[in-house]
Amino acid sequence: MQQYGSLIPIHVDEVVEKLQEIFSESFSQPHRSRLSGTAMVRGFQVTYKRHVLTMDDLSTLYGQNWLNDQVMNMYGDLVMDSTPEKVHFFNSFFYDKLRTNGYDGVKRWTKNVDIFRKDLLLMPIHLEVHWSLVCVDVPHRTVTYFDSQRTLNRRCPKHIAKYLQAEAVRKGRWGFVHGWKVHKNRLKIPSCDSPCPSCCPALCRPLQYCKCLVLGQLFSFGQQDMPRLRRLMYKELCHCKLLP
């Protein structure tokens, strides 16, 4: 409770393992059940850079709750900061601003960063009740749209490609003005078996896409892995770093 503010990220097996470590003796194997996440330290907070997560934010990782922007953006920064020279993560509000206000609405968002010096640009996309992800491979000039529902959203990656062209012109990076290619789910990714909002765990998937892309890992997780991955993400947010 002191470390995480609740029992949400803890599995009963971890409690038994810790008890055995402390008391140097065996404890009976637990029943396969989840610990209750209802008991919480209401004043608990996690602070990282400009992010402040409260228990209300962290509790969105419990059960099948919907993740909020605060969790999405802090986790994205953890992913970016694991390889800051190679990756830039855009705030979850970026695409909505671009879609509604055009390039002029977001041109100042990168005033302190040259995105064309990065290898990967990660852009979470929040459309109504569904999260997806756009990944830009800068050296290969590709814009790839990852969506667990495999919906056909042609506008989103095209908006991003136009943004990249406008950004290249404004920054004088003429080699990046042309040649961008758009792909939809270019890699094999785990699909979501049912549409949102009934499949709320699918909202975690863009975060896992980010982590796998940055670490060079395959998308080997499925819907059945979401409870475990939610607990892991909770711990990563509290420790302010990615964990194995």
Rank of each mutant, 00 (worst) to 15 (best):
Y234D: 04
C196L: 10
P206Q: 07
M123T: 03
Y62C: 13
H140S: 11
S33Q: 14
R150G: 08
L127D: 06
K97C: 10
F221E: 10
N112L: 07
H11I: 05
E236D: 12
P244E: 13
Q217S: 14
K111M: 09
H178E: 09
I115W: 02
V71T: 08
E17H: 14
S194Y: 06
P195S: 06
R231M: 15
L152D: 14
H11G: 03
L61S: 04
T100R: 09
V113E: 13
D104E: 09
E17N: 13
R141G: 01
T142S: 06
Q45M: 09
P201W: 02
R50W: 09
M123E: 02
L61Y: 06
T151M: 13
M233L: 15
F221D: 12
S28T: 09
K18S: 06
L164A: 05
H88E: 13
R228N: 14
L133P: 02
T38Q: 15
F44Y: 14
S33P: 00
R170M: 10
E25P: 01
K188H: 00
F44R: 06
E25C: 14
F90T: 02
W109P: 00
I189K: 01
D225Q: 13
I10F: 03
T142R: 09
P30L: 12
R141C: 01
P227T: 08
D147T: 08
N153A: 14
S33F: 11
Y75T: 02
L237I: 07
P195T: 05
L121C: 06
P190I: 01
M80W: 01
Y75Q: 02
L152E: 14
N153P: 03
L78N: 01
W180Y: 02
L61W: 10
L218K: 15
R32G: 12
M1F: 09
T54Q: 08
T100E: 10
K235H: 09
Q217R: 15
V129D: 12
V182Y: 00
Q149P: 06
K171P: 00
W131N: 03
D137I: 00
V46C: 11
W174K: 04
S194Q: 07
I10L: 09
V87M: 03
V16N: 09
V134G: 01
V87R: 01
